[in-house]
Amino acid sequence: MDPAGIYRTTYLDDMSIVRTKTQWTILISALILTVLAPFYLSKNLIDVMSLSCCILISTLGIQILTGYAGQISVGQAAFYGVGAYASAILVNDLGVPFIFSVFLSGLIAAAVGSAFGIPSLRLKGFYLVMATLAGQIIIIYLVSHMHFTGGMVGHKANYPSIGPLTFDTGPRLFWLNFSFLLLMTLMAKNIVRGRWGRAFIAVRDNDLAANVMGINVYRTKIFAFAVGCFFAGIGGSLAAHYTGMIHPTQFTLMDSIWYLGYIIIGGLSSITGCYFGVIFFVTIKEILTHLPVSAEMAQYILPITDVAFGVVIILILIFDPKGLNHRWELFKGYYRIWPLGYK
């Protein structure tokens, strides 16, 4: 929704992502503040933000797949893992430059994801969940037991480097991951507001009607899996080089469920919602995990944090089931007419 008095007179204008001068000012200020974050935020916060960028990229993928295309997947962590392993193997074992390996990893994850998306042609809802669950289990089993993935030992992933520049410090890794996040956000935004995005929404809302309208439902579903997993692969690739070591235990079913949690809490069918979901989860998790308690009391107090986490999630779902993005939209609607609002 645009502020009152803003009119769009061309189609291009109407399609623009950033629509007002205020939005441009906020966006540029936010970008500058984020890029300069390593200079004023603690190293630890930068590290957390770095890893969150990778998670966010993967969340954008599941938002497209589940939020827009309506294909519920509980295998996103495994596809994230595919990207991570692909990149680690490409860079460390095959000597592929990092910049190519990131995109290749995305493509490999997309190919694997498409294969596991094939059941979506026949299955829906809970049945599709079961199919993607099988994907999660099979992928993790395979990477745990294959020689070239390092099996149970895991696989190393060197620091990423592009040309002479090696990203071997916290701030550098953050800048790299953040750049990719911006790029992937733009990509996601463009996909969902374009022809494919409209096809995803049509298939999600009523695949029969979509078919009647001339949308190839099968191709759309497979493409949704490919796109969703491509994003997971890119995120996984960045995470592998950020962490330095990958192991099957880093890509669990629980992580896949959290991905659904991020988009549900953030807001389904919203790219901004992904940001809200991930930032909310990571912030709460960090606060509750790092409560300043004495070593003696830690074992009694820290486990309670899980309960607190659960309570916060329940409260959000009760008071705003449409997610945090909806709350943000309400807030925007309010401040745009402040102080001359009417009832």
Partner: peptide, 25 residues
Amino acid sequence: ITADVVDTKYDSQNVINAFNRFIDE
């Protein structure tokens, strides 16, 4: 001598964040 305790909750992301945090501090 004292220990700063972080509950890693059997979760790899928590472990990675905890280790980085300790070293950053």
